[in-house]
């Protein structure tokens, strides 16, 4: 499975590399000794039980929080300790879909998608509107350009948020709990959409989730964060981990067993 992920890669250099990362809020260490690579064009899932620090790790990966120690490399360039201008340049190559959508409520869907384009591309308004329409069409929201986020359903908010995350053709898409709060069918459709977009856009996708169905459906590789040891529990292909992981907590998580 993972071997297919290198088709777009010019080299086998990892797209995102995390080295000896330690995450802490003050004295309170959330996660430590995190070292892993995210390969180009793969769907990489960060999973784990509630409170294991999944979302905290994501917040560090997208630069909202500074690690206590350790480094994050993005495409070979150091990201975690880059200066402000380098950081902004790197951040522009990311797209983030937040857990609750985080659409700007005072803007319509088209305006939400258009805002990053307006800020970071030299395109005239007409082209921006055209691109916004296209991005919304990709997530199945054409015809809803002039709706406000408060006027559409939760699943549509998620999809609109995905469209906004894709606005600048990001190289890496970070998705925080894409299936949370969606019915199984919608969640499944969103998973399919993510895979289709990954294949056709050539982007690397990093997903934070604890939904098993979604993990098995989309993940090329999955990283299990262990709430007990506060570090990586396992890393590998989900089916492999479920059946053969040496860590019993990983197996019970993926088999949905309430042991331990």
């Amino acid at each position: 499975m993972a071997s297919t992920s290198s088709t777009f890669s010019p080299a086998d250099k990892p797209h995102v590399a995390v080295h000896a990362l330690k995450l802490a809020y003050g004295e309170n260490v959330i996660l430590r000794d995190l070292t892993f690579d995210i390969r180009r064009n793969e769907v990489f899932v960060i999973m784990g039980g509630s409170g294991c620090g999944k979302s905290t790790l994501l917040r560090h990966l997208i630069g909202l929080q500074q690690p206590a120690s350790g480094e994050i490399f993005f495409d070979g360039a150091i990201f975690s300790s880059a200066d402000a201008s380098e950081r902004t340049a790197l951040l522009r190559r990311f797209g983030v879909m937040y857990q609750s959508g985080a659409l700007w409520t005072s803007l319509t869907l088209a305006e939400n998608v258009a805002l990053p384009l307006r800020e970071y591309t030299p395109l005239p308004d007409k082209d921006i509107a055209m691109l916004a329409r296209y991005k919304l069409a990709l997530v199945g929201l054409s015809g809803y350009e002039d709706y406000y986020p408060s006027e559409i359903s939760g699943g549509m908010v998620k999809r609109a948020s995905l469209a906004r995350a894709m606005a600048l053709d990001p190289e890496v898409l970070f998705l925080d709990e894409p299936g949370a709060g969606l019915d199984p069918v919608t969640s499944r459709l969103l998973d399919d959409l993510i895979l289709q977009l990954r294949d056709s856009l050539g982007a690397t996708v990093v997903i934070v989730t604890h939904e098993l169905a979604s993990i098995f459906a989309v993940a090329d590789r999955a990283l299990f964060l262990d709430a007990t040891t506060r570090t990586i529990g396992a890393l590998g292909e989900p089916n492999e981990l479920r059946d053969h992981s040496e860590n019993p907590r990983v197996r019970s998580f993926l088999n949905r067993k309430a042991s331990l």
């Binding site: 054409s142 015809g143 959409l193 289709q196």
Partner: peptide, 17 residues
């Protein structure tokens, strides 16, 4: 990509908005 954008249009055209 275009097929994706068109299939997912739910039968609503852009001009409807």
């Amino acid at each position: 990509l275009l097929a994706l954008a068109l299939v997912r249009s739910d039968g609503r055209s852009g001009s409807e908005s």
